[in-house]
């Protein structure tokens, strides 16, 4: 696919907490011509953050992030229309959609995936899935927190984390898993020791270090995935793209019915 001739996307903006237009769209590209118009809508609802961004192929042009674990259904649609309005864009101009596929608490995760899949189908645009832990990892690199191997650990509830380990450049070293924080930290420490590292206490991003500081004593930003990071890595071609289907990692919590109890006394 042809992209901006000037190369990969600009750096994503950080710390934006409300809808804002981050720049004028469709200015002339630095040192080149647009070979293709790109307007990517990115969203992720795998964590308490409902995060949405628009990327025009050169930069993030609007972003909205709100942290509220209980209101994904309420917040997502207004956030999408909000970024479109802030960027002065029409929904028909969207050329592709990117969505965080988790892992994450199922109910919230599905809100984003249902929206992305339906938007893709209704606008007839491709939908690209990216592991939400990878999105956080890209945030670590973008905010200068790389330089050594690190862990991304997000809240999986039930005293567990969703986690994956990354190398200093943000390349994933271990597959996404669900485990207690202590087990996750130990497993990645062992992975690093096998790889010959001296210091086995890897820094950790995501909500994991805030929730489990004993297991993850060294915290790095960001705490949540950012759609701006998601958009940037998809436009830049750095993301591992997967189908836009949920990464649950856990089976449904179900048991066949118990044998019937006697009602005769």
């Amino acid at each position: 696919m042809l992209r901006d001739a000037s190369g990969p996307a600009g750096s994503p903006r950080r710390g934006v907490r409300s809808v804002e237009a981050a720049g004028k769209r469709r200015g002339s590209p630095p040192g080149g011509v647009w070979l293709e118009t790109v307007l990517l809508l990115a969203l992720d609802t795998a964590t308490p953050a409902v995060t949405v961004a628009l990327h025009d192929g050169r930069d993030v042009v609007a972003e909205s992030t709100t942290v509220d674990a209980r209101r994904h259904t309420e917040l997502l649609a207004p956030a999408i229309t909000g970024v479109l309005r802030a960027a002065g864009a029409d929904r028909r101009e969207i050329t592709e959609i990117a969505v965080g596929v988790g892992p994450g608490p199922f109910t919230g995760l599905r809100v984003g995936l249902a929206a992305a899949q339906v938007l893709g189908a209704a606008l007839d645009r491709p939908v690209r899935g990216v592991c939400s832990l990878d999105v956080v990892a890209h945030g670590v690199i973008a905010s200068g927190g790389g330089g050594r191997p690190f862990v991304v650990a997000t809240d999986a509830r039930r005293r567990e984390v969703y986690w994956a380990g990354y190398d200093a450049s943000g390349r994933r070293l271990t597959p996404p898993q669900v485990a207690t924080a202590a087990d996750a930290a130990a497993a990645f420490g062992q992975h690093l020791s096998i790889a010959g590292a001296d210091d086995m206490t890897a820094p950790a991003a995501g909500a994991g270090p805030r929730l489990y500081p004993d297991a993850f004593p060294v915290a790095v930003e960001p705490e949540y995935p950012s759609a701006a990071d998601l958009a940037a890595v998809v436009v830049g071609g750095y993301a591992e793209i997967v189908e836009p289907d949920p990464l649950y990692l856990r089976r449904p919590d179900i048991a066949p019915p118990a044998p019937r109890k006697s009602v005769l006394t």
Binding site: H72, T73, A77, T81, A114, A115, A116, Q117, V118
Partner: peptide
Amino acid sequence: AGALMVGVSAAKALAIAL
């Protein structure tokens, strides 16, 4: 609750797209 959210999110996205 969780089942309703899938439909509502899908419907909201459809309303935006159309």
